[in-house]
Design a protein around this nucleic acid. Structure first.
Lengths: 204, 204
DNA sequence: AAGGAATGGTACCGATCGGTCCCCAGGGGA
DNA sequence: TCCCCTGGGGACCGATCGGTACCATTCCTT
């Protein structure tokens, strides 16, 4: 029974924070929702901010595990997995009660870039970027280093846009851009050279 | 002296809301910052939420006017103006005290998609999308209807990413993607057909 | 069976939240 | 001159904020 209170607090806080926002949810709400006493709460967490950080850290691990598992479940060859990212994203956006990326939301609410919350968000996005880059490497892309942040920008754009539009269409839109991005070398001048090579019969 | 209190309230609120977040700023702070009495505040605005809406509406008009003026100031031909969007965006991100898009931030803080704040945000983004589409039409793009939301997704991605990265590099990254997007027809199957046409000597 | 750590409940703390009400000074129009 | 509107200042409201202290209970360990 010892650690159960902790888990219940984290579960309730994760849901409430995501649904209503961090500042909008008082400690009282978390306590009643999780049926935990006030003293027990502060026995487990030094402050509300500390709880926020722990919630985000747990969400980070869960979300990345979900993304990894979802993409692997597609069973597509490695070359197509970077594009599959956006199919998984579409599934996520279609999930019930989607209200944006919990990390972007937390970063915006925190407002202070020195806040420990901001640090957790940066760490999360860096980890996701790493994963995207791994997919690109496995897909045999030599330009993985420049391509990964570009795909991340598309992902973040889709995450934010879908909140405003209230649909998951932004994921397919981002996927379309990504497919185009992956269809040719990342530098447009390379593309010109390639097309020229085709026309001139491969002359160098 | 009559309307001055109103303007001072809007100015102070705009700055405080953007810097620290809407929920984080109490009415008291706005009053002391603008040197306006409490009663006078509620004589001008029905509530804090009403103030938020008016602040956002004013910011919407100012920001779009700035964007329009900045792009026109470049003096580039119409065909290159869609790309110039991202140069202007880079300027904006480099501005002092950048802390993200005020509208995205407000939407996230509001949390409720039925909120009047959410409505103002949607209206703002729709207006910007219209402007982007106008640029595309002026540039002679026939696929302006699908291209405009795609460029918007890139813009939103850059706006959010730059907060996390703390630099304006995301704008040039988005610009690179946009240039690629504009370099070929928006449907990748069209690109394939076009390349085939080159190889087969234009056979249909 | 005894001890002790962890629990849920609650009273309480000072501070701040958004909002209402009253007072008085100033200043322009009748 | 009088009047009235808008101005700022501030007392005050109930509610809630994050956080502390104390309580009796419960459950596990020894």
């Amino acid at each position: 029974m010892a650690v159960q209170a902790r888990e219940r607090l984290l579960d309730a806080a994760e849901k409430l924070f995501y649904d209503q926002g961090i500042r909008a949810v008082g400690v009282e709400r978390i306590l009643t929702e999780s049926a935990v006493g006030r003293a027990s709460f502060y026995r487990h967490f030094a402050s509300k901010d500390a709880l926020v950080v722990e919630v985000l850290t747990r969400t980070d691990q869960r979300w990345r595990a979900w993304l990894r598992a979802t993409i692997e479940s597609y069973g597509v060859p490695a070359a197509e997995r970077p594009v599959a990212l956006f199919d998984a994203l579409g599934e996520w956006l279609d999930g019930a009660g989607y209200r944006g990326c919990a990390f972007i939301n937390a970063m915006i609410e925190a407002a202070d870039s020195d806040s420990p919350i901001h640090g957790v968000v940066v760490a999360h996005k860096d980890a996701v970027t790493d994963y995207v880059q791994q997919l690109l490497v496995a897909a045999g892309r030599e330009d993985h280093a420049t391509l990964a942040p570009e795909l991340m920008l598309l992902i973040e754009g889709a995450l934010v846009t879908s909140v405003r539009e209230g649909s998951s269409e932004a994921a397919t839109r981002a996927g379309r851009i990504a497919r185009m991005l992956l269809a040719r070398p990342s530098d447009p001048r390379d593309a010109v050279r390639r097309r020229l090579r085709v026309v001139t019969g491969g002359m160098r």
